[in-house]
Amino acid sequence: MIKDRHITLAHGNGGRYMRELIEGVFVRHLANPALDVLHDAAPLALDHRLVPYITTDAFTVQPLEFPGGDIGSLAVNGTVNDLAVSGAVPHFLTLNAIIEEGLAVDLLDRVVANLAEAAATAGVKIVAGDTKVVPRGQGGGLYLATTGVGLRDTGCALGLDAIRVGDAILVSGPVGDHGIAVMLAREAFELKGAVRSDCASVLPFTAPVARFAGTHFMRDPTRGGLATVAHEIARASGTDVHLYEAQVPVRDAVRSVCEILGYDPYYLACEGRVVAVVTPETADDVLALWRTLPHGAQASRVGTIEAGRGRVVLETAIGGSRFLEELEDDPLPRIC
């Protein structure tokens, strides 16, 4: 552990302070044989019979810590999940940390510890990294960026182009938890509530399902939520996506906040859920499997791919219907 209580610009100067920061925080939590801080680049031991997949993401969440996760666990799971829903098994991550001068070392240490735990849970190694310190006022405390490399079977044919009319749309659990948990953690709008982020690796959900012949497509409904994934499917496949309001799992606490602020839960971010498009014959097998997993009890068939022209239709609980449009702008709380 480093002696200083707050990060200063000196921790980014390349000298002794920086070495202390890297060794005292990052290496202490993330050490593994592949993370060699003495070299400028790391070799990747890949199985050449498999197809390498790569993805990258940046994380700027505020606040840095929220019920159910923090920016560290998010930085791992966000990138792991992008690989997982592509049908790949994640193996390696790189990590960039852009730290604002004045950040409490204790907080940084907690974040990196949670990041290490999330990486261990997902079975990925951090193989390269970098830190920078920016002057006070020029960053949100801490920004993280991760790049992930995974491997996918050559026989795997998941993709938007595999989607067919008649396919079933499944979600692995309640939607909107992450979006509402982070919003509540900001303590804006004087709202309080016991909603925890669903931030987690979705690998246990995706790895077995990717091997099913009837699985056509998977995606994690992060920013923009379920409705945005539905739009991506509808636009890419030229079909209509029908969602069933009564079947979409939404926690009561999430629904209440949505009602107060006028949000639509279908547009709220998840960080530990999967949307899968599968043949109708496969749907029950996938749901049965998902429901045996932790956080999978509420897995549900929420919709169907129908012939059409790229629209997303919500069939409402009372037997009506409306279109779910693409997210227009940042929702602001409504007046009454």
């Binding site: 639509d264 919500l314 069939e315 409402t316 609980a317 009372i318 037997g319 009506g320 219907s321 409306r322």
Partner: peptide
């Protein structure tokens, strides 16, 4: 509107 009442 959100319940699709008009159509029903």
């Amino acid at each position: 509107s959100m319940a699709g009442l008009r159509g029903a």
